[in-house]
């Protein structure tokens, strides 16, 4: 513990990141450039999210990391251990107990409170990137609020697939001003972006931070005749029976067998502890895992 400054980064770097965060909160959806540091993990593994978490963590915080909804995948476990080691903060898998939650690809099923911070790992912060490769041009488009191009992408979806096929990283407009990439969360989670907690987005490789203050108005783009629809697998969780949570599909054999289960592992486990059982689930037993 004494070998590191609290939460790995030096204090000057944290100040720099906090300034970027404050600017991001003041201009919701605007991508604030920051001097991203090298972190002891490869780009694409959450270097942006880790730096934002390091800048907002205090010794009293309880930290949770989720990767695709799960607390127990390699990425989640290693980032959680990283801050256990370098910041000595308490960690948890329970959404309700955490004060800072770093996430990749999901928003927890349980509603967040105003005293919680959600930190997203963002691979490509620029929603216009795949249509307009020039950074100079995309910055100009943001500056002048020229967002017609974003609808061209949705148009292409409908003309090719008959419907808006974009299922994740679904573009949103923030407070009627900035076009924002909500990171690769499923569009099922888009309505949850208007929440009580503070949401911070960190892109390490692209050196950008952006933010959503509590209850910021976030509108998912659509056409008048093809309205936005949050979608999920038309199924109930096979473990806990939930019909409202976002599901993962798991192939279980080579006979076409499959099962659906909540992608949010904490949500699923909590429900099973409360006695809910899905069609393929076993009744909950303490220390069954």
């Amino acid at each position: 513990m004494s070998d590191y400054n609290f939460a790995y980064l030096d204090e000057q770097t944290k100040r720099m990141i906090r300034r970027a965060i404050l600017k991001g909160l003041a201009i919701p959806g605007y991508q604030v450039p920051f001097a991203s540091r090298e972190m002891p993990m490869p780009y694409g593994w959450g270097t942006g999210g880790v730096q934002v978490s390091a800048a907002v963590l205090t010794p009293d915080d309880t930290f949770k990391v989720i990767d695709q909804g799960a607390d127990d995948t390699t990425n989640a476990v290693s980032i959680r251990r990283f801050f256990q080691k370098t910041a000595g903060v308490a960690v948890t898998e329970a959404t309700a107990e955490a004060s800072v939650i770093q996430t990749r690809h999901r928003i927890p099923e349980q509603d967040l409170r105003s005293d919680q911070i959600l930190v997203y790992q963002v691979p490509i912060p620029e929603p216009l990137r795949f249509l307009e490769p020039s950074e100079v041009e995309t910055r100009k488009m943001h500056g002048l609020e020229e967002y017609g191009l974003m609808h061209v992408k949705l148009y292409e979806d409908i003309s090719q697939h008959g419907d808006i096929a974009t299922a994740y990283a679904y573009p949103v407009k923030v407070e009627g001003r900035y076009m924002m990439d909500p990171s690769p969360i499923p569009k099922f989670d888009n309505p949850k972006l208007e929440m009580a907690g503070i949401q911070l987005f960190g892109a390490g490789r692209e050196q950008r931070i952006y933010a959503l203050p509590p209850y910021t108005k976030v509108v998912s783009l659509d056409f008048e005749d093809y309205p936005f629809q949050p979608t999920k697998a038309d199924h109930a969780c096979d473990l806990c029976g939930s019909e409202v949570s976002y599901l993962d599909e798991l192939i279980v054999d080579d006979q076409g067998g499959r099962m659906f289960m909540c992608s949010d592992t904490d949500y699923c486990a909590t429900r099973r502890r409360q006695g809910h059982v899905g069609t393929q689930g076993l009744p909950h037993k303490e220390d069954a895992a």
């Binding site: 017609g148 061209v152 409908i158 008048e224």
Partner: peptide
Amino acid sequence: ERLMAVNARHY
């Protein structure tokens, strides 16, 4: 594209 750039929003 030009239609959408001037706020046409009906596919």
